[in-house]
Amino acid sequence: MDRLQAMRIFVKVAETGGFAEAARRLNLSPPAVTRAVAALEAALGVRLLTRTTRIVKLTESGSRYLEDCRRILADLAEAEAAASGAYATPSGSLTVTAPVLFGRIYVLPLLTAYLSDHPAVDGRALFLDRVVNIVEEGIDVAVRIGPLADSGLSAIRCGSVRRVVCAAPSYLAAYGTPRRPEDLARHRIVVASQTERLEWRFGLDGATVVPLKPRLTSNVNEAAIAAAIEGWGLTGVLSYQVADALRDGRLQVVLEDHEPAPLPIHVVHVEGRGASAKVRSFVDFAVARLRANPLID
């Protein structure tokens, strides 16, 4: 049995949650994947996975072994990359994640520009409105908005964005401009949320909390912004999400003196014993471009 190949197969089964999906991604047959995991379990003398007709779950021993496999395979990849010169010349596959709207507006142009300059690198954009575990999900670089949790990741601050309340000039002309957070109770509110409890915070310390009773709720920011641009009500968003609409006058910021503290933007990556050339060069490229962007404070 090729132990390293078996470890790679086991890791992929654990990550995908199934033998068939792991086989598809590895371009192997499902029986070959099943045999490799069974041989690995036999060699170790422990059950790594619990199989049912519907799901595959890690055992306690399997969870510990998974982390060991990831570390061993990462060390091997690092050694091979160093030997082949990958730490000198950017090459290979680069996966970048960011929030959906920020990723589409700012990160995707960075990635395409970088790929144009580095033909030996292939890119993958993963835009999600959730915090991705970049170690477990095999992500090279993440762009994150908001305070960072303590971790062993390397993070470089490259700007910040404001949390703003805005409306179309036509709405403000018809319904008046709120001067204090409490005035929002008399206005139409449009929000993008999937939670039942809604509130906006104001003041640099966020101590002023205003409960909301929105007239219109959407599951995506684009819809809330579109409704605000149409003059239907006030919405609260991040400044980058409405930068174009603010610049051309379709929207106007209100309650600016009561805004909470800006949210930081960081470029995050796993450094390890030495980040590869593709990661180092993309991080340097992205940080410089983001810091130079006039729409990011």
Rank of each mutant, 00 (worst) to 15 (best):
Arg273Ile: 10
Thr59Leu: 12
Leu128Asn: 06
Ser61His: 09
His187Met: 06
Glu137Arg: 12
Ala79Tyr: 03
Pro99Ser: 02
Asp284Arg: 08
Ala6Arg: 02
Arg188Asn: 12
Val279Thr: 11
Ala81His: 01
Val254Ile: 15
Lys12Pro: 14
Asp297Thr: 13
Ser276Phe: 11
Ala38Arg: 02
Asp248Tyr: 08
Phe10Met: 02
Thr208Gln: 06
Val37Ala: 01
Gly206Ile: 00
Glu199Trp: 05
Ile156Ala: 14
Glu80Met: 10
Glu230Phe: 07
Pro211Met: 05
Thr50Cys: 06
Arg188Leu: 05
Ala79His: 12
Arg124Leu: 15
Ala223Asn: 10
Ala43Phe: 01
Ala226Tyr: 04
Phe202Ile: 00
Ala245Leu: 12
Ala223Met: 04
Asp297Phe: 07
Tyr114Phe: 15
Arg280Thr: 03
Ser151Pro: 04
Leu58Arg: 03
Leu212Asp: 02
Gly18Thr: 01
Phe10Gly: 02
Thr177Lys: 10
Pro262Ser: 13
Asp205Ala: 04
Met7Glu: 08
Gly138Ile: 02
Arg201Phe: 12
Arg250Ser: 15
Gly123Trp: 04
Val131Lys: 15
Asn221Phe: 07
Glu67Asp: 10
Ser93Ile: 12
Gln5Tyr: 06
Leu115Val: 15
Ala167Pro: 05
Trp200Ala: 03
Val254Glu: 13
Leu212Thr: 05
Ala142Glu: 00
Ile145His: 09
Ala277Cys: 12
Leu204Ile: 10
Ser193Tyr: 04
Leu295Val: 14
Gly231Arg: 08
Ala226His: 04
Arg163Ser: 12
Thr217Gly: 10
Val210Phe: 01
Leu108His: 13
Phe202His: 07
Gly249Tyr: 12
Ala192Asn: 01
Ala149His: 07
Leu263Asp: 08
His118Glu: 08
Ser151Leu: 05
Asn221Ile: 13
Leu73Ala: 09
Leu204Gly: 10
Ile9Asn: 05
Ala207Thr: 13
Val37Lys: 00
Arg247Asp: 15
Arg35Ala: 08
Ile134Pro: 08
Glu78Leu: 08
Ala22Leu: 01
Gly17Tyr: 11
Leu204Trp: 11
